[in-house]
Amino acid sequence: MKIYTKLLLLGLFAVSPLSYAASGLAFIHGTGNQTDALSDYWTRDFVDSVRQGATTPNNYVVINCNFDQYMWEDVAAGCLAEQLTRFIDDKAITDLTLITHSNGGNVVRWVLSNPTWDGRYPKIINAISSVIAIAPSSGGTPLADAVNQGNVFETSLGWLLGYGSNAVKQQQVSWMSYYNNTWLNGTAGRPTLGKPFEVIVGSDVDSAFWDSDSYCAGYQYQVALETTQNWLDDCSDGFLECQSQSAAGTVWFTDKQRTAGREPLSHQQSRRACFNLDTIIADHI
């Protein structure tokens, strides 16, 4: 009887989800050709703080891909698929949370919306439990239109957008409208993404030199985004209008609803440990 009981317990343990299931986090950057997104895009402070909310904090990956290209290209979505597949296989991940910023949300939506495009996509989609999309450019931005028209934005926004890359062309308002009506899911009137796509919306920019909050993530960026905000709706993070950020998925919250001191998150600040954003995400995951 004792031998039978021990064998039964061993059998139950062998098939228990705890014996093989693992959770993981992936940080997916926005527009840009990244080789060290941990340092250059997110910062280690942000990543290390967010991952403390995970069940297994050491199971994380920071993606480095060429998101200067169209979302479907091999150096963009293909690169993302390769790095996620390797992470899933190496860590036996079955519960994957993706944290995206800006154009990274479009690349992820491409994968979720087109499962037959690439043989690696189904495994990734099956492993994903949710997507936290910070300031996603789901509806594009008028600033991308301006850059491609070759006016002043091309130089003033070079640090944020790049100079006329394919990814910038992709984020023109009319182009994103086309993609949202054809190739991408998750927007009004389209099929769902099949996975929660929770959006954090940035609604304003503060750049008052006497306000210490304006210096989080770099005062010079706040000044630049305050300037470009003049060409956007009143509700914007200096790069994306609120309606663009909320075009796909479900809005989790708009910055001031949860941030410390009800501070807004500019497009630069929403990928940094500003106003408790990092701990808000950590607590959520």
Rank of each mutant, 00 (worst) to 15 (best):
P17S: 09
M1L: 14
T155C: 01
V201C: 11
T116D: 11
A92S: 15
V201P: 05
I280V: 14
L7K: 13
Q220P: 14
Y121P: 15
S138R: 00
T56N: 13
E226N: 15
L8N: 10
V201K: 07
D233A: 10
L160A: 12
T155H: 05
C235Y: 15
I99F: 05
E263H: 05
H29Y: 04
L12P: 12
L8M: 09
Y221H: 14
E198R: 13
N180W: 00
D283Y: 09
S212G: 03
N33C: 13
L157T: 02
T155N: 05
K6P: 06
T55L: 13
D204Q: 10
S214W: 05
L10V: 07
S16N: 08
A247Q: 05
D213L: 01
A224M: 14
Q34D: 11
F13N: 12
V223M: 10
Q229D: 09
N166P: 12
V107K: 09
D283A: 06
S39H: 10
Y179V: 05
P142C: 06
D234I: 15
E241I: 06
S138Q: 00
P122S: 08
D74A: 02
E263K: 14
N66E: 15
A260I: 05
N66A: 07
D211T: 12
F13E: 10
V152C: 02
T141V: 08
C65E: 12
A22W: 07
G53R: 05
